[in-house]
Simulated scan of single mutants.
Amino acid sequence: MDEGARQTRPARRPGRLVGHVLGIPVFLHPSMLLLALLVTVVYGGYVQSELGLPGPFAYAVGFGFVVCLLGSVLLHELGHAVTAKRFGIGVRGITLELLGGWTEMDRDAPTPRIDALVSLAGPAVSFALGGLATAAAFALPDRTVAGEIAFQLAASNVIVAIFNVLPGLPLDGGRALRAGLWALIKDRNRATEAAAWAGRGIALLTGAAVFTLYRLNVITLFGLIFILLVVFTLWQGAGQSIRLARMTRRFPLVDLSALARPLYAVPSGTPLAEAQRRADAEGRAKDTLAVADASGRVVALVDTAGAAAVPADRRPWVSVDTVARDLGRLPALALGLSGEQVVRAVQAHPGAQYVVTSGEDVVGVLHVADLAELLEPRRTARRPAPN
């Protein structure tokens, strides 16, 4: 299953770079190795029983089919990537994983039309590959290795293309549906949420259908498990789309001047217990504890988690400097950034604290927990935000 071209900014890509195609980095997720093993064994066993080939050669054919499948998935994703680049959208890479692949772009499509074209480019490639493989299957002799591989490629590409054009996120058809709703209601976030709920509906219907087919002995237990894994992935992807839409809707609420916690600076060498006592006494306990040099310039921030990890009976003997981080090692956010710019910066440089600056002056500290509480109040309502 292909999860569609999607915009993500992972802190660490879960895959190994295996090369570049048309200048686009291609990554292989470790889960793809599991799929390669399963397909090699299952298809190799099928070839051995149906065509009477010796075991080693049959499994070599199974591995060759895996390579063909990977090529098909890669071409599908290149359909998304090349179309995105055609419209000036940067492509960070293509990742091939257990249930297909995904294309990471550096920004969203600027218009519904471009969103729809980028989304449907992948299924168009799969339909084309399926048509070519079908023609090859008819042209090649029956019960031959080439004929069997052509037939399997035709079936897999057509099935992938049909499934991916179903109108529900995170499928490509869901992105096309989102584009249509976006053009109609002029609100991309509401359109995303509606298309994602459609995706969850498709997941439920697919799950019900596959259970029925299994009970009728139409598919095997292996097929049931595999399709249920696809259904679970679809459900999770739709949930992520809903979450992202709700977060994005709240981007205008992000105001660094309001979110940044003020600094409460103590001289370098101050015992941690004394620094916390002073902050409590002045009603500044929620402010960010900072370390200042002899001239009064803030040079470091006390790490909240590090300070909390120091036992209370040791805090009078531990200097704030030992649980502080130099300002130069912390990511900085300039006052005045938009909500989207703040979120982009946080995703690009994950951390717990961000120095908020105005020119060369440090005016406060953004705690990522505060940002999360603002963007996702439903998820953070059950757990207290750390001080």
Rank of each mutant, 00 (worst) to 15 (best):
D2E: 12
T8F: 13
R9I: 07
R9M: 12
R13N: 04
P14M: 08
V21F: 13
I24D: 02
V26K: 09
L33Y: 10
L35G: 02
L37W: 02
V41S: 11
G45A: 09
Q48V: 04
G52R: 00
P56C: 05
C68Q: 02
L69C: 13
L74P: 11
H80R: 04
T83K: 00
G93Y: 05
E97S: 13
L99T: 13
R107M: 06
R107G: 06
D108I: 03
A109C: 05
P112Q: 06
R113Y: 13
I114K: 03
D115M: 08
A124K: 00
S126C: 03
A128V: 13
G130E: 03
G131Y: 08
L140K: 00
V145Y: 02
G147I: 08
A150T: 01
F151A: 14
A155H: 00
A155K: 02
V158W: 12
P170C: 02
P170S: 02
A176D: 05
W182P: 04
A183Y: 12
R188P: 15
N189F: 10
R190K: 15
A191D: 12
A195Q: 10
W197L: 13
L204H: 00
L205P: 15
F211Q: 11
T212H: 10
Y214F: 15
Y214M: 09
Y214V: 08
V218C: 08
T220I: 03
L221F: 15
F222P: 06
I225S: 01
L229N: 02
L229S: 15
T233V: 15
G239M: 07
P262Q: 08
P262A: 11
A273C: 05
R277S: 11
K286T: 14
D303I: 04
T304R: 04
A305S: 11
A308I: 05
P311V: 01
V318A: 00
L327Q: 01
L327E: 09
L333M: 03
L335D: 12
L335M: 12
Q341A: 15
A345H: 08
A348W: 02
Q353Y: 13
G359Q: 10
G364R: 06
G364F: 09
L375H: 04
E376D: 09
T380L: 12
A381V: 11
N387C: 09
